[in-house]
Simulated assay, not measured.
Amino acid sequence: MRLTVEAGGLTLQNPTILAAGILGTTGASLKRVASMGAGAVVTKSIGVEPRYGHPNPSMIKLECGYINAMGLPNPSYREFLQELEVARQAGVPVIASIFGANEAEFREVAEGLPGASAYELNVSCPHAKGYGMQLGTDPALVEAVTRAVKGAVDVPVWVKLTPNVTDITAIGRAAQDGGADAVVAINTVKAMTIDIDSGYPILGNISGGLSGPAIKPIAVKCVYELYEALDIPVIGVGGISNWADAVEFLMAGASAVEIGSAVYDGLEVFASVSMGLSDYLERKNMKLEDLVGLSHRVVKHEAHKC
């Protein structure tokens, strides 16, 4: 079954994408993920200056997923440029995840990392002071940052949104107004955990972001709302670990899906999701594009019948 899809200005051989921050620190690791079946890969979030991130422990596994507070560690765009060149040999689109404290920094990083297939603006990290969601909760700032990067590059610009807001569609509309080619929903949900023997928070940063299966219903709802509100594509991410999860996101309105936490259980997840999706479409006698937004059409059809 044909799985080629147009998503946010890119052509993907299948709708699975490696999410930002997962095995995206080197060009070699990005190439490896591509060789295991990912339709595209997203790099680690890269900024203007090197950052060492938060003190350990910076990531813990829970029954329902993971909580991490990495703190955007990265070597800076100057040092990462060589890794991007290596990643471009992967044979799939390479999307550079970038961050900054303001529009000027976002633009500097985008211009300093030429050659990416697209840029994903991280305005949603919940645990890096002065970055991420501290910008991404303000529609005016999101619009300004998006417009600054869009005016500096000639490839698609995606904006990764935070769920830690009252109305995610307001942020999505701001990204769209700034010229975004797609929005990515969602980043992690603010969370923490405490050691009951000492009473002390377990993470070195005290709190962090929850990912994995626990946030999938939140992510599906955000994708559903954004699909209704926007005219640009939505890329779904959050708790996807199998083909059925991917189908659910597509039905909610996602044009493609990013996979993050599930990678820790094996890189076979990309091929497994694609194969399962292909089998599902064949059983249903459907095309991939028939799935995108299907839930909306079903709801409207039932409402019309009433």
Results as ranks from 00 to 15, higher is better:
Val184Gly: 05
Asp279Pro: 00
Ile98Tyr: 05
Arg78Ser: 04
Gly21Met: 10
Tyr119Ile: 04
Val220Gly: 02
Gly21Cys: 09
Pro126His: 11
Pro75Cys: 12
Phe106Leu: 08
Ile218His: 05
Leu18Asn: 00
Pro50Phe: 15
Met133Ala: 14
Glu143Gly: 03
Ser45Ala: 14
Ala34Asn: 02
Asn242Thr: 10
Ala104Arg: 02
Pro73Gly: 10
Ser117Phe: 11
Phe106Glu: 02
Cys125Gln: 10
Gly132Tyr: 13
Leu121Phe: 06
Gly136Val: 13
Ile240Arg: 01
Leu81Pro: 00
Ile95Gln: 04
Leu267Val: 11
Tyr227Asp: 03
Ala174Ser: 00
Arg173Cys: 08
Glu225Asp: 14
Ala28Pro: 01
Asp138Thr: 02
Asp154Tyr: 09
Ser261Val: 04
Leu3Gln: 14
Pro126Cys: 12
Leu141Ala: 15
Lys300Gly: 02
Lys221Glu: 13
Arg78Leu: 12
Arg2Met: 13
Leu281Glu: 08
Leu203His: 05
His54Gln: 06
Met251Cys: 14
Ala303Val: 04
Thr146Tyr: 07
Pro57Met: 08
Asp154Pro: 02
Lys31Gln: 12
Phe106Thr: 03
Tyr227Ala: 12
Ala175Pro: 00
Met59Ser: 07
Cys222Phe: 12
Ala69Thr: 10
Ala110His: 05
Arg297Tyr: 06
Ser76Phe: 13
Thr169Glu: 07
Met286Leu: 15
Gly91Ala: 09
Glu85Met: 01
Ala175Gly: 06
Gly179Thr: 07
Gly236Phe: 14
Ile259Gln: 03
Thr146Lys: 03
Glu225Phe: 08
Leu84Lys: 00
Ala182Phe: 02
Tyr224Asn: 01
Phe99Ala: 15
Ala254Asp: 06
Leu294Trp: 10
Arg32Gly: 00
Glu248Pro: 07
Val189Cys: 05
Met1Asn: 12
Leu135Asn: 04
Ala244Met: 15
Ala271Gly: 08
Gly132Lys: 03
Val299Lys: 12
Gly47Pro: 08
Ile171Asp: 01
Thr137Trp: 09
Pro55Leu: 15
Gly212Cys: 11
Lys190Ser: 13
Leu267Thr: 11
Pro126Ser: 12
Gly253Glu: 11
Ile67Gln: 12
Leu294Cys: 03
Gly27Trp: 08
Thr43Ser: 04
Asn68Asp: 04
Ala87Tyr: 00
Arg78Met: 09
Lys61Arg: 14
Gly179Trp: 06
Val223Thr: 08
Ile186Leu: 05
Thr188Ala: 13
Ser198Ala: 09
Glu103Met: 06
Leu210Gln: 05
Ala101Pro: 03
Asn187Lys: 01
Glu120Ala: 04
Ala214Asp: 06
Asn285Phe: 07
Ile259Ser: 08
Tyr52Ser: 15
Ser241Asp: 14
Glu108Met: 13
Pro213Leu: 12
Ala116Leu: 02
Ala254Trp: 15
Glu103Arg: 09
Val149His: 01
His127Val: 03
Leu30Asp: 06
Asn122Lys: 02
Val94Met: 13
Lys216Arg: 13
Ser97Asp: 15
Ala116Trp: 04
Gly151Ala: 01
Leu81Arg: 07
Gly172Leu: 03
